[in-house]
Amino acid sequence: MSSQERSADTEAAVQSTQEDRMQGADDRFNSKLREAFGSSPFILTKFDQFMNWVRGSSMFMLQFGIACCSIEMMATYAIKHDLDRFGAGIPRASPRQADVIIVPGTIVSKFAPRMKRVYDQMPEPKFVVSMGSCTISGGPFQKGYNVVKGAEEVIPCDIHVPGCPPRPEALIYGVAKLQERIANGESSPVTVKPYELKQFGDLEQDELVDHLAQDIDEETLVMRYNWADSP
């Protein structure tokens, strides 16, 4: 994924999304209070530390299964590995009540818009653990015609756990690392490639869009994949 390989456009887009995410400190930790005070007075610093500890100590996971890795993810919740020891073992079915989404598997073109929506439905602050090779780069299926080359093409990821699939121990390590980072107030330099949900009418006009114009309503949300630009 070296940046030289990307076209100039893509790189600019990546930088702009990076900047959007990285205004000042990570937005997810920013509070209205801090805006009001302007600087970091003692009481707010202590409060920040406390909040970081809180967020790093306890998290609800989204009950979210995609592919092979979700089997290992279930094993991580279950008896032998018991992720709940780390205060991270309550799977919530509704994204509204979840803090962390573990993305366990290959993301394909049909699923990426749905995953984006599920991620959008989660309340801030939210964190993403991408589990397995497929969510890093597409893994063994990278050359497939239908496979999105990594979760970061769609949503920002905080921790990558490599493996195919990662062992439960590796996932626990990933979650523990995430908790450590949150507790220390660190944030990841997040890069999101702009596969965004857009209204069909807002897409740039080209041959494909003209061709689809009869089938798709102007206001329908769509995601456009430029496979040629993929790493």
């Binding site: 494909l208 061709h211 769509v222």
Partner: peptide, 25 residues
């Protein structure tokens, strides 16, 4: 594949690099 997919990928003259649009409706 999504209903808006262009081309038939296991056919012989499929171009894997062409862009695709997938709806979320």
């Amino acid at each position: 594949l999504p209903e808006t997919w262009q081309g038939h990928p296991m056919g012989m003259d499929y171009n894997q690099d062409q862009p695709q649009v997938v709806t979320f409706e």
